[in-house]
Design a protein around this nucleic acid. Sequence first.
DNA 1: TGTATTCGTCAAGCGTTCCT
DNA 2: AGGAACGCTTGACGAATACA
Length: 400
Amino acid sequence: MFGFFHSRLALSKSVYLFVSNAQLGVLPFHPAFIIRSFSSTISSNLNEHSFIISYLINSCGLTLKSAQSVSKNRSLRFQTPERPDSVLRLLREHGFTISQISKIVKIRPEVIVLHPEKTLLPKFEFLLSIGVSKSGLSTLVSRNPDLLARSLERFLIPTYEILKSLLDSDKKVVVTLNRMKNRSLSFFQKRFSNNLSTLRGRGISQSSISYLVTQSPLTMSYEMGKFAEGIEKVMKLGFDPSKAVFLDAFRVLLGVSHKTWEHKIEVYRKLGFSENEISTSFRKFPKCMVLSDKKLIGIMDFLVCKMGWQPADVARVPTVLGYSLEKRIMPRCSIVRVLVLKGLIKEDIRLSTVLIPSEKLFLKRFIIKYQEHVPQLLDIFQNQMEVAELGSRISGFENV
DNA sequence: TGTATTCGTCAAGCGTTCCT
DNA sequence: AGGAACGCTTGACGAATACA
């Protein structure tokens, strides 16, 4: 099962030294690249760094790129494999798969140097004691490795108690913990009660509060002043706190500064949105205010200039602004263009009809349905998708 | 005092399912 | 069909505190 875990290459810091970081970057990893070192003191830092990288690749299943990036973490320091080995053993004993272990290491690499029995095991035991299932444990922890990097006494237990007091059942607490999959647990317990008071003070019902907490627990960890201000704004705008869009609007308003907000409005104006359309777009899809200018301009240029839709059409379904231009919008529009040219669908087809349906549904409605008339449709679609995939891979390499 | 452990912050992107 | 609701993921930093 764990054949992935090759025998480790570097056994001890003083015995082996990798050729160099530069070579690690261009050559495939192989024992042949290990040479004996007769001067370990001179290059001990490099030695340790290379050792960590090799460990991350061979024992934790990371790619070279991730291993190099993760190894920069200052909290991740070890010179021999004993400690991380015993942590990995503990994780495997608790049912963690290699991909879950990789995930944990990528997000919170320092976990693999924590003390397995003294630090990690009690956390596992605690989570199991509050009703996390044996199989659910690995899912929960790999989604949110912060749970292992936080103190049991000072974080896990108090957080559990806070949630339990509000949500009543352990089951709901576990669901909520599963949703706290982010690296922003930091302020949760510190700010929770104040933010809770703000919500109650604004007359928001207990059920809406529970909804907010279970759906988006981390929202409760925002800085108190900002939190109160955000609630105020969203209420003033008339959003209904029992609806999910209230939450989205709230999170957007919390994250966007006045300056960015004004700037974004100016971008929408330049893209041809009326004041009213900007406002309805925000009401329907608050996230439209946190999309990058580059993304917005790219999508609008394509939809309006190349496809002939109007900004008003986009304002009607602003959700489309959240999609990937290359991976979703362009491939689908190519298909639509062909179908319109062939007279198989009407020219004034709605934007939402093309872009909102799931991949499966789109294939069914626009490709499989017309395959007899236009057999090459699937090829066109797949080619576009491949181009998009290639594009994202190239930009990935450029970022290295 | 050095090491181990824990804590802190924000921005941005992508997609499916559900309801009317 | 059209639109609303909901769920999930990643990147990029660094710093403070506890403890042996």
